[in-house]
């Protein structure tokens, strides 16, 4: 039982990171990035390539991965946001999905279909807590997620850039009028959002193996979490992520291991029907 809690929270932390990246991009650009899971997968592979293939120390491999992911985020912004403003949503969604398809198959070509693993960066004895075991890596994942949440929240509310980002999301033209460099702000949001996906990827790789198709399911879970937590609410995403991880762990044990993935989607659809703004979402008036 405590072991279920630990593994549920660990996976939940990964969901939360995916969701945080999604939210950041959405809150600045109003684009839902359906390739967030594939970005995570690329992050995992980049870390593996740097550390395992090229023998870089973990810290250097991680730094390089995050930098590369930020760059990839800017590419996303240039393709999926800039030329598509004002276009019907379904075209934007399809574009990000197509970008995900490209990434997944490039990974397949470059790294092959077989799962690979990344050594954990911190080595140490697992902890025993209340009858369960927590490995260093699990601690590391949860700790990093919490840190990311705190850092992001501070960034969005305290930093000038965060404020600019929110202003841009509210009214693009107005933001431009008052002199915000809109393109730069949005590019930064995409870079950070993609970086968060990369972070999730390099955290996940030592725990579960990396493979080209790993992104699909993790990306979708990220949405579920974003929806449940209320789109635009950072702590909501973390609570939602941890919650979903726990529910899945328990559902897999006590209900059905085969339908553990279905649980997330059922929760999401139920949430969309009952409370589309999510658990912690604010109500936003619609303009006529």
């Amino acid at each position: 039982m405590p072991q279920l809690v630990v593994s549920g929270l660990t996976l939940g932390a990964v969901y939360a990171l995916v969701a945080l990246g999604l939210l950041l991009i959405f809150s600045a650009a109003r684009v839902v990035n359906f390739a967030q899971g594939q970005l995570l997968m690329i992050g995992a592979y980049l870390a593996i390539a740097a550390q395992v293939r090229h023998g870089l120390p973990a810290w250097a491999a991680y730094g390089l991965t995050l930098a590369a992911m930020a760059l990839l985020g800017v590419v996303f912004m240039l393709v999926a946001w800039r030329p598509l403003r004002g276009r019907p949503t379904h075209l934007v969604i399809l574009t990000t999905i197509a970008m995900g398809i490209i990434l997944e198959n490039l990974a397949l070509i470059v790294w092959g279909p077989l799962p690979v693993s990344l050594p954990a960066p911190l080595v140490g004895r697992p902890w025993r807590v209340a009858g369960g075991v927590i490995t260093m890596q699990q601690m590391f994942v949860m700790g990093t997620t919490m840190l990311a949440l705190v850092a992001l929240s501070l960034f969005m509310t305290r930093s000038r850039f965060g404020v600019l980002m929110r202003a841009t999301a509210q009214d693009l033209d107005m933001a431009r009028l008052v002199g915000i460099r809109v393109d730069r702000t949005i590019a930064a949001a995409f870079a950070i959002g993609s970086g968060l996906a990369g972070l999730a990827g390099l955290l996940v790789a030592p725990l579960y193996l990396a493979e080209p198709t790993m992104g699909g399911s993790l990306g979708l879970k990220g949405f579920v979490v974003a929806v449940v937590g209320g789109f635009g609410n950072l702590p909501g995403a973390v609570v939602g992520g941890l919650g979903l991880g726990l529910i899945e762990a328990f559902a897999a044990r006590y209900v059905s291991a085969e339908y553990r993935d279905a649980v997330a989607f059922i929760i999401m659809i139920a949430m969309l029907c009952v409370r589309p703004r999510g658990l912690f979402g604010e109500t936003v008036g619609e303009r006529v």
Partner: peptide
């Protein structure tokens, strides 16, 4: 729009999982 996109993706996933399991 995108809430509907997610709901329909979720629907597709559920159908797929039921067929599979």
């Amino acid at each position: 729009s995108f809430y509907l996109a997610m709901a329909t993706i979720g629907f597709g996933e559920i159908v797929h999982l039921v067929l599979l399991h």
